[in-house]
Computed example of a mutant assay.
Amino acid sequence: MIPYGRQEITQADIDAVVGVLKSDFLTQGPMVPRFERGVAEHVGAKHALAVNSATSALHIACLALGLGAGDTLWTTPITFVASANCALYCGAKVDFVDIDPKTYNLCPQALARKLELAELDGTLPKIVVAVHLCGQPCDMATIRALSQRYGFKVIEDASHAIGGKYRGEFIGNGRYSDITVFSFHPVKIITTAEGGMVLTNDADLANRMSLLRSHGITREAEQMTHAPDGPWYYQQIDLGFNYRMTELQAALGVSQMERLDSYVASRHAIAQRYDQLLATLPVTTPWQHPDSYSGLHLYVIRLQLEKTNRSHRQIFESLRESGIAVNLHYIPVHAQPFYQELGFKQGDYPQAEQYYREAISLPMYPTLGDTQQDQVVAALHGALAP
């Protein structure tokens, strides 16, 4: 079976993790700060904080930006549920903005129209989460300009996008957003097994998120309500969580970062070959905006179903039966039963729903060889045949 995504673990990765196992620190040692510095320096951000998942990163990012009861967060319906759930964790509401039919990201024109209406009825969002689907960045310059006009904060959910660029600069540098989130799940571009990171250029936000990831506890005297009782002293000054990353995970991340740029370059070579091999098939291959250099976490095709007599499901199942473990990213969040109970319904976001009826994620990972890629394409040819 050829999976849709796969991590690469090298001997250098194994040696890095074993080195931590033989050290004095399994958690809260030197490797986490080293990993944070490495990522921050690579992308050009001032502050980076490693956490145990991108979901945790989204949660503390929302809390640090003051999201709470009475507030609303907007995001795209084509994303993993965490991009929306993070608002509900904070007691806030969620709403969605339909996608651009070419990039599959949150549509900036739809966002502008929705903001105009929201300003009139007093329902402007507190935060917009811009998800860089498949690794391709959103139109961040437009989103930033809208945030300055309407007063909302911006989180880049770049879970798919580490190593990618927007307008020639690495995603995560904070030029167009308040906070950026990365994911290091095994199928992502680099991995720490599970893990995530928040990045910001705002020292106050960084300090707030640092507290929130570790129980709201500080050992810094200047943050305490009174002078420390002694060198053992700490204070809980906020209600935080146990969202820390371990030293083992960070060591793996430090090692994987050495190959980040080559991983993304390999993904681009694979995507270019897919584009050529699929050119004659009734599928739409991913379009890349000229302002973007995608991280290419995923390679999503859209089926031109009007040109074949087979259904979306038949084609998907045929690929699976041929040993190709394709996937579908994502089921629109507003179509999930939990969100339907909140009042969302089919027809609310037609572009997202049309995407869902046509999308299939083909295998994409740096070690995918030409022979395997040829198998994928041959299986797709067979699946599309009458």
Rank of each mutant, 00 (worst) to 15 (best):
P108C: 02
P108L: 04
P108W: 10
Q109K: 13
A112G: 07
K114G: 02
K114T: 09
K114I: 06
L115N: 05
A118C: 05
A118M: 09
E119W: 04
E119Q: 14
L120V: 14
D121K: 10
G122I: 09
T123E: 12
T123P: 03
L124R: 04
P125L: 01
P125D: 02
K126E: 01
V128D: 06
V131M: 04
H132V: 00
L133S: 11
C134I: 11
C134T: 15
C134E: 15
Q136S: 13
Q136E: 15
M140P: 00
A141K: 14
I143L: 05
I143A: 03
R144C: 09
R144V: 00
R144F: 08
R144T: 02
A145G: 12
L146V: 08
Q148D: 12
R149D: 11
R149F: 06
R149K: 15
G151I: 04
F152K: 05
F152N: 07
K153V: 02
V154N: 03
V154A: 06
I155D: 02
I155Y: 09
I155V: 13
E156W: 14
D157W: 08
D157E: 14
H160T: 01
H160L: 07
H160Y: 14
A161I: 05
A161S: 14
I162W: 09
I162V: 13
G164H: 01
K165E: 12
K165L: 14
K165P: 01
Y166M: 08
Y166N: 07
R167F: 00
R167Q: 15
G168K: 07
G168C: 07
N173H: 14
N173T: 03
G174L: 03
Y176I: 08
Y176T: 09
S177M: 01
S177H: 13
I179L: 05
F184E: 04
F184H: 03
H185S: 10
H185T: 09
H185V: 00
P186W: 09
V187C: 03
V187F: 06
K188D: 10
I190D: 01
E194V: 12
E194F: 11
G195I: 01
M197Y: 03
M197T: 08
T200Y: 07
D202M: 08
D202W: 06
A203Y: 00
N207S: 14
N207A: 15
R208M: 13
R208S: 15
M209D: 05
M209L: 09
S210K: 11
S210I: 00
L211Y: 04
L211E: 10
R213S: 11
S214T: 11
S214V: 11
H215W: 12
I217Q: 07
R219C: 04
E220Q: 14
E222Q: 11
M224Y: 06
T225R: 12
H226T: 12
H226A: 13
A227H: 11
P228R: 02
P228H: 08
D229I: 06
P231I: 12
P231E: 08
W232G: 04
W232F: 12
Y233D: 15
Y234A: 13
Q236W: 07
Q236K: 15
I237Y: 07
I237D: 09
I237C: 04
D238M: 14
L239P: 00
G240E: 01
F241C: 01
